[in-house]
Computed example of a mutant assay.
Amino acid sequence: MLGVFGLVIALVVFVIFLLAKATVLKSFPELEGTPEIGKWYRITPAGTKSSDGSEWHGIFRKGNQNKVVVYFFGGGVSITGETSQGGTDFFATTMMAQDFVAQGGIGSTAEENPFKDWSFLVVPYASGDFHAGTGEYHYIKEGKDITVYHNGYNNYSSFIDKAKSYIGEPDTLLVTGFSAGGFATSLLADDVIGHFPAAKNITVCVDSSLLLYDGWHETAVDLWKAPQEISDRLVGNNLVLDSLTALHQKRGDKVKILFDCSYRDDTLLQYQAYINNGKMDNTKELGDQFQLDLKDMVESLQANIPGIGIYIWNLNADEQTHNTQHTIISSNFLDKLGNDKSICEWIYDAVNGNVQTFGLELLSEVV
């Protein structure tokens, strides 16, 4: 009887392993030679690394249209030495499960996804620096010198340089990202645009990225060691507002700018609580404050960037706190979220010259 039970357990474990390999542990093949249209690959440039020093790679899919999405992943942030030492308590430190994430949301091949035939240059996140760092943080633990690699900019730029050779010169460019990848989108959009000089139709979309912190400039300079042209833009406590404003001032109406966020983002407000009070929390009162902060941010974006598209949404609100889901383009991309358009339709309309705004009424809603 015990032998049969042991075989059943072994079979269950094996099935779980197979499911994991097909989902969270999925790993794309390394690109060698000519890429096949529609197939996902990893590209591993020399010298790139995750924050713990382990392997890092970019993710690539070649489309059959002369259009490209540069897509930054999220996964937390380090803003001080304390958070760098905290590692996985604050940010993704390895590439675990990121190949799997690439295939969802905007990266899906669903028939109704208008981006399904575009080329994708996906920038996974395992550096804690909003993809903007070139530095290292060192500390001593149990007598050992530990290095945290905030090398996000090095990873991103090496990957883009290598992947570009497979797609030529696209005429249409979408730069987007969620959470930490949304912050990266604002920080790096101008840099990305510089890699694709032939692209005349350019859209930049930031998904779910609002944190207020007076020390952004110092963090970018001293901890991440971001390139100066990136850190110099950070003059206030709102990194995305500063960066998108600078982008518009430089590029003008040649770049269409979009911003979306759930109106009481549960994850962002927890990080904001840590910034303000040194402890993550997610109370209704913190949601109320986030809602006010988001309203102020949207008004500032609209004042600084005439013609910006805004999409505010509500999904999976907690019954007690009313705090809402974090990020959308990697998951519920095709859902309408109470608005006339889905995030997918909203972005695609903007790409085609019709920039719209939805959901502002949520910012004044009393909960």
Score class of each variant (00 low, 15 high):
Leu11Phe: 15
Val13Cys: 15
Val15Arg: 08
Ile16Cys: 14
Ala22Leu: 14
Pro29Cys: 09
Gly33Thr: 03
Thr34Ala: 12
Pro35Thr: 03
Glu36Phe: 06
Ile37Thr: 14
Tyr41Asn: 10
Thr44His: 12
Ala46Asn: 13
Thr48Phe: 01
Lys49Ser: 13
Gly58Met: 06
Phe60Leu: 11
Lys62Ser: 04
Lys67Val: 09
Phe72Asp: 04
Phe72Lys: 03
Gly76Pro: 07
Gly76Leu: 03
Ile79Tyr: 10
Glu82Leu: 03
Gln85Trp: 00
Gly86Trp: 05
Asp89Ala: 10
Phe91Lys: 01
Thr94Arg: 13
Ala102His: 08
Gly107Trp: 08
Gly107Val: 09
Ala110Val: 06
Glu112Ser: 14
Phe115Tyr: 15
Lys116Phe: 05
Trp118Gly: 04
Val122Pro: 01
Val122Met: 08
Ala126Cys: 15
Ser127Asp: 11
Glu136Tyr: 03
Lys141Met: 02
Lys141Ala: 11
Ile146Glu: 11
Val148Ser: 03
Tyr153Gly: 06
Asn154Val: 13
Asn155Met: 07
Ser157Val: 15
Ser158Glu: 13
Glu169Asp: 14
Thr172Pro: 06
Leu173Val: 03
Leu173Trp: 04
Thr176Val: 05
Thr176Leu: 06
Ser179Phe: 06
Gly181Thr: 02
Thr185Cys: 14
Leu188Asp: 09
Asp191Met: 02
Val192Ala: 12
Ile193Lys: 10
His195Thr: 03
Phe196Pro: 12
Val204Asp: 02
Cys205His: 12
Asp207Met: 08
Asp222Pro: 00
Asp222Asn: 10
Leu223Phe: 01
Lys225His: 15
Lys225Leu: 01
Glu229Phe: 05
Glu229Ala: 02
Leu234Tyr: 11
Asp242Phe: 03
His248Gly: 08
Arg251His: 13
Gly252Thr: 09
Asp253Ile: 00
Val255Asp: 09
Arg264Pro: 04
Thr267His: 05
Gln270Tyr: 04
Tyr271Phe: 15
Ala273Asp: 13
Tyr274Asn: 08
Lys284Ala: 14
Leu294Val: 07
Leu294His: 08
Ser300Met: 11
Ala303Phe: 04
Asn304Met: 01
Asn316Glu: 15
Asp318Lys: 11
His322Arg: 14
Asn323Arg: 12
Asn323Tyr: 10
Gln325Cys: 09
His326Ile: 05
Thr327Asp: 09
Phe333Ser: 00
Ser342Thr: 13
Asn352Gln: 15
Gly353His: 10
Asn354Trp: 06
Asn354Thr: 15
Gly359Arg: 10
